[in-house]
């Protein structure tokens, strides 16, 4: 079997197995076939972790594979890696170019505001990186809210922004995954609802009256802002339907009441339909 076939089989398995154990399964699958490690680690989303930026009053920032270098993560606040990397390693570490860093700072500021309005708490971090020495860029916008071990939300938006040749318009592509974990463990009954949904979106925006870098920053940050706001609103509704309606629908076909009162109702109902059809 080729490495590609094994990679596909591993991805399929990760879409079947218990999402609360995704980290263990990821490690296991990599142990079975080390060659699929890189592909799996960059395509399978796992819950975000939190670190503190000691150069920015211990403000928390979110960590994932996209802001990682060796075992350190770059903070969007001070633009430094934590734990600190050696001068030697740091030479190779990725940082956004100066104009892109400016946009990164602006996005972090506006998403802080968004986080406050929608999450009323939690954490956010945005990381951007340059693409091919052009004005195009890519990045990831992250949110995490955990009320306790019983309810946790992680949203991961992987974005790319591509300009057309004339520089008149820009197309944003966004792949969003929300990982939502809810559980209710009481002595008499345990219940858990856990997993993730992924959706892709894209939008093309005209760049009107935008000619300087100073104008590009607010143009990009507000386009990304409204796009993320729309996507999260839609996904939140989908999550609500899947978690609280679809799963209960499945339960209701597993155990369905056929006792006399419902049988009677069904009979009356079909009788009613028959009578209507006769009319």
């Amino acid at each position: 079997m080729s490495v590609d076939e094994k990679y596909d089989a591993a991805c399929e398995l990760l879409y079947r197995l218990d999402p609360t154990k995704v980290k263990t399964h990821l490690q296991n699958l990599i142990a079975l076939e080390p060659e699929i490690a890189e592909g799996l680690l960059s395509s399978i989303d796992i819950p975000l972790t939190i670190k503190k930026d000691t150069d920015a009053n211990n403000k928390e920032f979110l960590c994932c594979d996209y802001n990682r270098d060796i075992d350190s993560h770059r903070s969007p606040w001070s633009n430094q890696y934590f734990p600190e990397l050696s001068a030697e390693d740091l030479k190779e570490s990725p940082f956004p170019s100066e104009p892109l860093r400016e946009l990164e700072v602006a996005c972090n500021n506006s998403f802080e505001l968004y986080r406050d309005l929608y999450y009323e708490g939690g954490y956010t971090s945005t990381y951007l990186w340059d693409v091919d020495e052009s004005t195009d860029f890519a990045g990831v916008i992250l949110f995490k809210k955990a009320e306790s071990d019983d309810s946790k939300w992680d949203s991961i938006h992987v974005i790319s922004a591509t300009h057309d040749e004339e520089g008149m318009e820009v197309t944003y592509n966004v792949t969003t995954t929300v990982i939502l974990h809810l559980e209710n463990l009481s002595k008499e009954q345990q219940l858990s609802l856990s997993g993730n949904l992924t959706r892709e979106n894209s939008k093309t925006v005209k760049l009107q009256n935008v000619s300087t870098v100073e104008q590009l920053v607010p143009a990009h940050s507000s386009s990304l802002g409204s796009m993320i706001e729309d996507i999260e609103s839609k996904l939140r509704s989908m999550l609500e339907i899947v978690y609280f309606e679809k799963t209960l629908d499945i339960y209701n076909v597993l155990r369905e009441r056929n006792d006399d009162s419902t049988k009677l109702q069904k009979e009356q109902h079909s009788e009613l339909i028959e009578n209507f059809q006769k009319l």
């Binding site: 990760l14 879409y15 079947r16 218990d18 999402p19 609360t20 009954q189 345990q190 219940l191 858990s192 609802l193 856990s194 997993g195 993730n196 949904l197 992924t198 959706r199 899947v242 978690y243 679809k246 799963t247 499945i250 339960y251």
Partner: peptide
């Protein structure tokens, strides 16, 4: 488009 598991015991 995802992986959602519901368990209760």
């Amino acid at each position: 488009d995802g992986n959602v598991r519901f368990k209760s015991t």
